[in-house]
């Protein structure tokens, strides 16, 4: 006969109630957290895992499922195959270059606008809405309008200024147009964040620095910028990630530019390779992962650079020395 497990009534009651308590709190956790968790799994974890698997397999043109496991050979191909190097890495380089130019613009311009709005001139609420408005318009519709406006022979802009510039045909002006499009639509988000951040800067700090004798520029450097540092860091991070993934603007505006090699961004290149057959899925997944790692590396560098620095004790030791000499 099996030995019977014994326990005291008190111990049993304690165990039961403890379990019930845990279940209750876990239950409410699941209730509130559940939907998000499911979405997280479906749209983030699952595609990430699938992408990893895809990047380590080869594909045939018949099926969208991986054909066989090939380890890291896809990655090796992306790094060594000449046509890959020419296409993918050049697009990565173009993307980084563009991001390096546009991210500062997308920080400085909204910051300047936010500071102007912070002065609260009459009608500032209208201006604030107008600055944010372009960001909510659909990308495709505005892109098409832009294509029409800047059309080489029939465009409004060329007619207005009586110039003859093929805006979308030449690489230089094409990137300029993409930059214009990005800035027009992209500053709204950062602008609102900076507006909120500027409001939270302690007004008495401005007064104190004014009494200390700081000029408006010094006040900006020592009071405003440190005051909005969390917002700045966040905006730089999100803008950088966003622009490294630039795709829509290039696709809509520059699909007909002759020198496609110089106007395709990394994600555009990846998307392009996806079209047609499913043979390229393995390489494309590997490219996607490589791109993700590059962005992660750049972001890590940025985070480290903007981290809070701890003190040290330089001043205290100097003070002790001074005290001794008195």
């Amino acid at each position: 006969m099996k030995p019977v497990r014994t326990t005291t009534l008190r111990e049993y009651a304690f165990k039961r109630e403890k379990l019930n308590n845990r279940a209750r709190s876990a239950g409410s956790l699941a209730f509130f957290f559940g939907p998000y968790f499911i979405c997280f799994i479906m749209f983030f974890a699952f595609p990430l895992v699938l992408g990893l698997i895809m990047s380590m397999s080869s594909f045939t043109s018949n099926s969208v499922y991986p054909a066989e496991f090939v380890g890291f050979s896809n990655f090796k191909t992306v790094f060594t195959n000449p046509v890959m190097i020419k296409d993918f890495w050049s697009s990565v380089w173009y993307t980084i270059r563009f991001a390096l130019i546009i991210v500062p613009l997308c920080i400085i311009i909204p910051l300047a606008l936010a500071m102007l709005i912070n002065l609260k001139p009459p009608g500032y609420k209208i201006f604030r809405a107008c600055i944010y408005l372009p960001g909510i318009f659909p990308l495709t519709a505005t892109g098409l309008i832009l294509l029409r406006m800047f059309s080489y022979h029939n465009g409004f802009i060329n007619a207005l200024f009586d110039i003859s510039v093929d805006w979308f045909g030449q690489t230089g002006t094409a990137w300029f147009m993409v930059g214009l499009f990005c800035i027009w639509g992209g500053i709204g988000g950062n602008f609102i964040i900076f507006c909120a951040g500027l409001e939270n800067v302690d007004k008495s700090l401005y007064e104190a620095s004014g009494i200390d004798g700081a000029s408006p520029w010094k006040r900006f450097l020592y009071v405003t910028l440190p005051g909005i540092k969390p917002q700045l860091v966040m905006c730089i991070f999100t803008s950088l990630c966003g622009y490294m993934n630039l795709y829509g603007q290039n696709y809509i505006l520059l699909s007909n530019t002759p020198d496609q090699d110089s106007v395709m961004t990394a994600v555009f290149r990846i998307q392009n390779m996806l079209l047609g057959s499913s043979r390229s899925y393995g390489y494309v997944a590997a490219m996607g992962i490589i791109l993700g790692l590059i962005i992660a590396a750049i972001s890590a560098v940025q985070m480290i650079a903007t981290k809070e620095r701890q003190g040290g004790n330089k001043r205290v030791s100097a003070f002790v020395d001074w005290k001794k000499s008195q």
């Binding site: 799994i41 974890a45 895992v49 698997i53 594909f59 045939t60 099926s63 499922y65 991986p66 054909a67």
Partner: peptide, 18 residues
């Protein structure tokens, strides 16, 4: 969950191409 998904895929995917 990741631990569950990966083997499921690996078993289901390969060799089943088209």
């Amino acid at each position: 969950l990741t631990g569950l998904l990966v083997p499921a895929f690996l078993s289901g995917c390969f060799g089943g191409g088209g």
